[in-house]
Structures are given as structure tokens and as C-alpha cells.
């Protein structure tokens, strides 16, 4: 990890301690794994204990949860949604499909590795992962935020050219999201 990224002031440490207790999640549920989310939210596992709440629009969310396989068409939407989210933002790849294509490895229509298109904070392995695994990974994410290591969102600004190239390659052309990533990078001094 880059030195500059892990250096933090006292204020940032306190802020991380408080912010990690409130994570709002936007679940992008086109894959089959979404079925494991209701038990995670309701009485049995209750993720609201950790301050994790489902939210509706990208503007309000901190976590983008990608449950499972993404076709080229839905990946476009994921990129758009990701760019509309407000930093700091964390992507959680859910299920083996997001890691390496999973059982759709041979499919012509789905993409294989999510982190070639947007930076991913944590992955949850499994096909499909149990609620325990989801809760575990959220706790991992919380710990990571606390340690100040959950900085993947800065990666998007730093290595935008890389992500952009992969996106354009898959989409066979640029997509217009009306987000000026380069200008934002200057705003964040990244």
C-alpha cells in the first residue's frame, strides 16, 4: 500500500472510528446471490446492528454490493452507478462470479473480473455465500475503514486510465456518465 495513502491525521482517525459505524448499502441485485440478503437484513442476522442499512440511490450509499454475475449490459449500469456515488465509497464483490466469472466462466455474455472495471474493496467468495460470510465480510470492511486502509475509491481516480481502457474495451466505445473523473481527481488532490 502506498505510504501517502495510509498516513492519517488524528482527526481522520477519529472520523474513521465514527464513520465506520454507519455504512449505507446499495445492493445491485441482478445476480442470483441476492436471495441471501433478506436473511442478512432481517431478524436472524440483522446487519443493522452494525449500522449497515439498505439505501435506495447511489447518492446516499457508501457500499456498492454487487451480487453475482454481470453481463456487459448491466456492467455499464454498475459503472454509472459507481461514478454517481459519493466518495468515500466501497465496492463489495459478492460471490465467485464477481471474482473470476464463477460458473459463468465460459459465458460469452458476462464479464469475468469486476476489479478490472471498478476498484473493489472486499470480495466474498462462495457460490453463493451464506449470510454469515456476508456479515463477516462487512465486519472486515469495517475493520479496514478503521485502520484507514479502505482507500480503493482513490484508486479509481489515480488509475482512471486503466479502468477506462478496460471499460471501453468491453463496451466497444466510451460511455457518457457526465462525470468528469479527471477534474474530481484534481479536487481530491489525488
Amino acid at each position: 500500500m502506498d505510504e501517502k495513502l495510509t498516513q492519517r491525521s488524528v482527526w481522520e482517525k477519529i472520523a474513521a472510528k465514527l464513520s465506520k459505524r454507519s455504512l449505507w448499502m446499495l445492493h445491485y441485485c441482478t445476480g442470483c446471490g441476492a436471495i441471501e440478503l433478506p436473511p442478512t437484513m432481517t431478524a436472524r442476522f440483522d446487519m443493522e446492528r452494525f449500522g449497515i442499512n439498505p439505501m435506495v440511490t447511489p447518492r446516499q450509499a457508501d457500499i456498492l454490493l454487487i451480487t453475482g454475475y454481470l453481463s456487459v449490459k448491466t456492467l455499464k449500469r454498475v459503472v454509472l452507478t459507481y461514478e454517481q456515488m459519493q466518495a468515500p465509497k466501497y465496492v463489495v464483490g459478492f460471490g465467485s462470479c464477481t471474482i473470476n466469472g464463477g460458473m459463468y466462466w465460459n459465458s460469452y455474455a458476462t464479464m469475468k473480473s469486476l476489479d478490472r472495471y471498478i476498484p473493489v474493496e472486499t470480495y466474498i467468495a462462495g457460490c453463493m455465500p451464506r449470510p454469515e460470510a456476508i456479515i463477516h465480510s462487512f465486519n472486515e470492511l469495517i475493520a479496514k475503514i478503521d485502520r484507514g486502509e479502505a482507500n480503493s475509491w482513490k484508486d479509481y481516480y489515480k488509475n482512471y486510465d486503466f479502468y477506462r481502457k478496460n471499460q471501453e474495451h468491453t463496451f466497444e466505445g466510451p460511455i457518457e456518465t457526465y462525470n468528469d473523473i479527471k477534474a474530481d481527481a484534481a479536487l481530491f488532490r489525488i
Binding site: T57, R59, R77, V78, L80, Q84
Partner: peptide
Amino acid sequence: NNYAAGNF
């Protein structure tokens, strides 16, 4: 640049 449930 607006929320439209992922629509462009």
C-alpha cells in the same frame, strides 16, 4: 448526471 436506476 442524475439517478435513473442505472439508466443513461
